[in-house]
């Protein structure tokens, strides 16, 4: 019992760290910092399944390792490469200012904690910050998606959003069949590759990754 308390304490610490990284992502004014924040968040998320297991499990370990590798290194690496080859300048260029984003993000975090009070949890998840962490990350992802104008920063926003959903998925780690999890992981990976290809096409067609230039189609 004591061990479990300690473990969930560590888990909550990591979730808190991930929530802090959300705010860092909102506040970063340079693309490399933003990508870095998302990468660290990916690694933090990858560690979590290991803490939730009471004994060592190969499959969970593999999932954790895969998550860390993909979210922490592969995708950030791809984004950094896209940034270099496109030689975009490193400013984030927000359409929602940094202070406003931070206010939205921290307000969202408070709202997430308040909201998750209304949602009943299973006894083994009691006291865990998974639900507020998940909602806060989803909201942060939205702010980044809406409030940033470069394709790369929008992809970062999408990743934060997905990290939020991953946090929620940890509640179900024992319940969902492996097949479903594998399918979801596959879809997410393919999705990111497709996004990468499109980012590349945008770069070639518009000679820029500024999505504000994508404004021909409107009513």
């Amino acid at each position: 019992m004591e061990r479990r308390c300690r473990v969930s304490g560590t888990l909550n610490l990591l979730i808190g760290l991930a929530m802090g990284l959300n705010l860092l992502a909102l506040a970063s004014s340079r693309l490399p910092t933003l990508i870095g924040a998302v990468a660290v968040q990916g690694v933090v998320l990858g560690v979590m399944p290991l803490l939730m297991e009471h004994q060592f499990d190969w499959i969970v370990a593999l999932v954790a390792l895969g998550t860390m590798a993909v979210k922490g290194f592969v995708i950030p690496g791809l984004l950094r490469r896209a940034m270099r080859t496109a030689s975009v300048d490193r400013e984030v260029e927000p359409s929602i200012g940094f202070v406003a984003s931070l206010l939205l993000g921290s307000g969202g975090t408070i709202a997430a904690v308040a909201l998750s009070r209304a949602l009943p949890l299973l006894p083994e998840h009691a006291g865990s910050l998974l639900v507020p962490g998940s909602i806060a990350s989803v909201l942060t992802g939205f702010v980044l998606l809406i409030g940033r104008s470069k394709a790369i920063s929008q992809v970062c926003g999408y990743l934060v959003l997905e990290n939020g959903i991953y946090l929620f998925g940890l509640l179900l780690i024992h319940a969902t069949p492996l097949l479903v999890e594998a399918g979801i992981l596959l879809d997410v990976t393919v999705g990111i590759f497709v996004t990468g290809i499109i980012v590349d096409r945008i770069q070639r067609a518009f000679d820029s990754l500024d999505t504000r230039k994508l404004n021909v189609l409107r009513e």
């Binding site: 394709a151 499109i198 096409r201 945008i202 067609a205 518009f206 999505t211 994508l214 021909v216 189609l217």
Partner: peptide
């Protein structure tokens, strides 16, 4: 270019 904008 328009098709890529729509795709994005």
């Amino acid at each position: 270019a328009r098709a890529i904008e729509a795709t994005w």
